[in-house]
Design a protein around this nucleic acid. Sequence first.
DNA 1: CAGACGTGGTT
DNA 2: TAACCAAGTCT
Length: 365
Amino acid sequence: MSPAVAKIERQEKPVVAESRPALLLDWYDRHRRRLPWRAAAGERTDPYRVWLSEIMLQQTGVKTVGPYFEKFLARWPDVTALGRASLDDVLRMWAGLGYYSRARNLHACAVTVLRDHAGVFPDTEEGLRQLPGIGPYTAKAIAAIAFDIRTMPVDGNIERVVSRLYAIEEPLPQAKPRIQELAATLLGPSRAGDSAQALMDLGSSICTPKKPACTLCPLNDDCSARLRGDQETFPRKAPKKPGMLRRGAAFIITRGDELLVRTRAEKGLLGGMTEVPVSDWLARQDDKVALEQAPDLNGVARWHRKAGVVTHVFTHFPLELVIYTADVAARTRAPEGMRWVPIATLADEALPNVMRKAIAHGLGE
DNA sequence: CAGACGTGGTT
DNA sequence: TAACCAAGTCT
C-alpha cells in the first residue's frame, strides 16, 4: 500500500464528507432518470421548460405531470406563446392537475416575462423570485438547473436526504434553515443543477420515505441516520390534523344535450375554474338546506335526488356531495352568471375533477 | 407562522 | 386501507 493511500484511509471520515458532491454527481451520471423536461447529458437546457416543469411539479408527482407537460409544450412551445394565450385556455389545459392558483400564476408569469423582460427569463435567483408563482425553492431550482448558478434548492426529497445524512432531530418546518445550509454543502465547484437533480433523484428512488435502499446509496458510508438504524424516522415532523367533513349539494341541470355551468370566483378553492351550480359546503349541512340553494329556473325545475353521494378529498377537508338533477325545457334561460354548454364538449372545459365526478354521477344511470 | 390550496400514487 | 406523500406558494 502506498503512503498516499494509507493516509487517505486514516482520514476516511473527512475525506468522505468532502467528496460527497463528486460521489453524488458520479451516481447521477450513471443513474439519472430521463424525464421529458430534462435535457440529455451535454444538451443545453431551456429555461422555459425548466420553469414550466418546476411549476407543475410543485406538490405533484413526476408521473402525473408528464402528460400535462407534453400537452403544454406542444401547444405553447415557448414563453411568448404562453404569454399570448388566454387565461381560460391555460386553465382548461391545467384542469385535473390541481392547485389551480399555479395555473393562474403560470399565466401571469408568462405575461410578465413577455411584457417586462422581452420574453427572456431573468437569469438570477433574485430576479426569478419576483415573478408570480416562483417562491424560494423554484427560484433556486431554475437558477441552478437552467443557468447553472451555484445554489441548492431544497424540496421535500432533499429535506429527507439531508435530515437523514445528519440525523437532524429538530422537526420541520423549524429545521428548514439548517437543512438549507447543510444541503448547500453538497454543491461542488460546478454543475449546480446536476447536483440538485441528483439529490432529488436520490430522494425519490433510493432515499425513499419508507424502506430506503441504503445499500445502493452513494452516500451510505457517511449517513448518520443509517449508522443509528432509524433512517425511516427522518425527517422529524408533527402529524397534521385531518380537516372536518363538509357536505353540500351539486345541481346537474340539463337542457336537452346541454349542461348548466358557471365560473367560480377568481380566488380561493378551485378559483377561476368551471363548476356546476353547488350549494355551500359546510360541516353539519342539511340536505333540505342545500336544496334551498338550487339555482332559480323560474320554478320550472323538478328536482330528482340521485341515489348515493359523491365523495372527494381535498388537502384540507373531505367532501360529500348530494346530487340533484333536473331537465328543463328547450330555450330555458340560464340564470344570471351561468351558461349552457354542450355535454359533448365537457372534456374541453376547465372542470376540476370533483366537478367531473359530480357530473358523471348526475348524468349516469 | 400556520392554514389554504387538488389530486393521484404508494405502502 | 388509511395514511402519507409529491420538484411549494401565498397570505
